[in-house]
Amino acid sequence: MAGEADFDAFYDATNRRVLHQMYAMTGNLADAQDVTQEAYARAWQRWKTVSQATNPEAWIRTVAWRIAASRWRKAKNGIAALARHGTPDHSPPPNPDHVALVTALKQIPENQRQAIVLHHLVGLSVDDIANETGAPTGTVKARLSRGRSALAELLTDTGIEVTSHTQGGESHD
């Protein structure tokens, strides 16, 4: 079935990249695996239209992020537990820098974390982030600026070199 073949090819080409991005956004590999897989399942449910979108990968990333954010809110409210399914973890031991970075990312607000990952990992411009998240560009700039400042502060005590803190973000547009 052509639809299945297209979907499978899309999945194979993008899932590792999206998993990486969701790991950075969630800070938890099992959660990242589950929300990413869930997003692909949702994509398949409406593949006819998702496949015709300009950027189906952005659709997956957006939906996966929303699932993760929704679960955090539920967990905080004590409403529902988060099922962590996934492949047994045969990952190498955590790199200390990774631990520090993931820990720091988890300490900054969700929207700042999302902006940081979209900009510094996915490589989106401020305008692209604004498009993907539905936030005004000024808001995205502010989130990036605040997120970077917060991260810099949080990482100061770790092994990651931080040369200085300045405000801004416009240079990354």
């Binding site: 990486h20 590999l29 692909y40 990952s91 790199n95 820098d97 990774h98 993931v102 990992l121």
Partner: peptide
């Protein structure tokens, strides 16, 4: 640092299409 997080994924993978 963000890019290098990929190494942390190790052999973890999604269950497939």
């Amino acid at each position: 640092q963000l890019a290098s997080l990929e190494s942390q994924l190790g052999s973890a993978r999604l269950p497939g299409a």
